[in-house]
Design a protein around this nucleic acid. Structure first.
Lengths: 97, 97
DNA sequence: AAAACAAGTTTGAAAAACAAACTTGTTTTA
DNA sequence: TAAAACAAGTTTGTTTTTCAAACTTGTTTT
């Protein structure tokens, strides 16, 4: 009998849409809304709500500014978010090996 | 701009509960319901429905028998299920590297 | 000045997950 | 030996999550 070695996975990150977002931000330090839209292929509505969830969790910081008279929303991982991602990644890698 | 290298993840397997079930079955060739109950720590109800979902997907074969006058349900991965798991694993490992 | 557009947000419906209640058959116990 | 408890599942009902469509606000274009 395997002694339940299953790790708790952080569901905020485990969702494919958010895993994608977080992975992009890990590499890039920062990205704007439209960039993430292109990378993830999510709809604007869904990107918006997934970002809200990441923000609520304290994993991304949202900065709303303007550029050329248009809204520009910049996203960054927080330290917490970066830590959470590292843990999620290690957890899953260890498990899948 | 990253050219969306995000892989499609098989959601039947991606769910933590089912990932756990499938991982156990990959190692063991076969297991019964009560064993999986202990390994996964799911409730009986939820294990039942997750197994149904895996069966519908064609990933596990369900054999209902009796042992000592009690129902005994034996679960095995199908070839399809094994293939799907291998692909899921490779996909996610490649992505997380 | 109306129409189209850009960048988001909010809302509503569908799907997924979880927990509680139910079923069926078997032991145990009073 | 009838009632109570138990074992192995399944079904049902509620909550949570996800996705798509509609809405908002401000700016160009025609």
């Amino acid at each position: 009998m395997i002694e339940n070695p299953f790790p708790e996975l952080d569901m905020v990150i485990h969702s494919p849409a958010r895993l994608q977002i977080v992975s992009a931000l890990v590499l890039l330090e920062e990205a704007d809304f439209v960039y993430l839209l292109n990378v993830t292929k999510l709809t604007r509505g869904n990107l918006s709500t997934h970002l809200s969830k990441l923000e609520e969790a304290g994993y991304v910081a949202v900065e709303k500014t303007y550029k050329k008279n248009r809204p520009l929303t910049i996203l960054r991982l927080t330290v917490q978010g970066r830590e959470a991602y590292k843990l999620y990644r290690k957890t899953l890698l260890d498990f899948l090996k």
